[in-house]
Simulated scan of single mutants.
Amino acid sequence: MLLILGSVFAGLAALIHVYIFVLESVRWTHPSTRRVFGTTAEAAEVTRPLAFNQGFYNLFLAILAVIGIVIALAGSAGVGIALMLAGTGSMLAAALVLILSDRGKARAAAVQGLFPLIAVVLLVVALI
Score class of each variant (00 low, 15 high):
2 L>K: 01
3 L>E: 04
4 I>C: 12
5 L>D: 03
6 G>L: 09
6 G>M: 03
7 S>Y: 07
7 S>A: 15
8 V>K: 06
9 F>P: 00
10 A>G: 02
11 G>D: 00
12 L>T: 01
12 L>Q: 01
13 A>F: 01
13 A>C: 11
15 L>Y: 14
15 L>D: 09
16 I>M: 10
16 I>P: 07
17 H>F: 14
18 V>D: 09
19 Y>F: 12
19 Y>C: 08
20 I>T: 11
22 V>S: 06
22 V>Q: 04
27 R>M: 02
28 W>K: 01
29 T>Y: 05
29 T>I: 07
30 H>V: 08
31 P>E: 03
33 T>Q: 04
34 R>Q: 14
34 R>K: 03
35 R>V: 14
36 V>R: 09
37 F>M: 13
37 F>A: 06
38 G>W: 08
38 G>Q: 02
38 G>H: 04
39 T>S: 08
39 T>D: 12
40 T>A: 15
42 E>G: 12
44 A>W: 00
47 T>N: 14
50 L>C: 07
51 A>Y: 01
52 F>L: 06
52 F>W: 10
53 N>G: 12
53 N>L: 13
53 N>P: 09
54 Q>K: 08
55 G>I: 07
55 G>H: 01
56 F>M: 10
58 N>Y: 10
58 N>D: 09
60 F>S: 04
65 A>T: 13
65 A>G: 04
65 A>I: 13
67 I>P: 01
67 I>R: 06
68 G>H: 00
68 G>E: 02
74 A>P: 00
74 A>Y: 00
74 A>N: 01
77 A>K: 05
78 G>S: 12
78 G>N: 12
79 V>A: 01
80 G>K: 00
81 I>G: 10
82 A>M: 13
83 L>V: 02
84 M>S: 13
86 A>C: 09
88 T>M: 10
88 T>V: 10
89 G>M: 11
91 M>T: 15
92 L>D: 05
95 A>K: 14
97 V>A: 08
98 L>S: 08
98 L>W: 10
99 I>A: 03
101 S>Y: 12
101 S>P: 15
102 D>H: 05
103 R>W: 14
103 R>M: 10
103 R>H: 07
106 A>I: 09
106 A>N: 11
112 Q>V: 11
113 G>N: 14
114 L>F: 15
115 F>A: 01
115 F>D: 00
116 P>G: 08
116 P>Q: 15
119 A>N: 10
121 V>Y: 11
122 L>D: 00
124 V>Y: 05
125 V>P: 09
127 L>G: 08
128 I>L: 06
128 I>T: 11
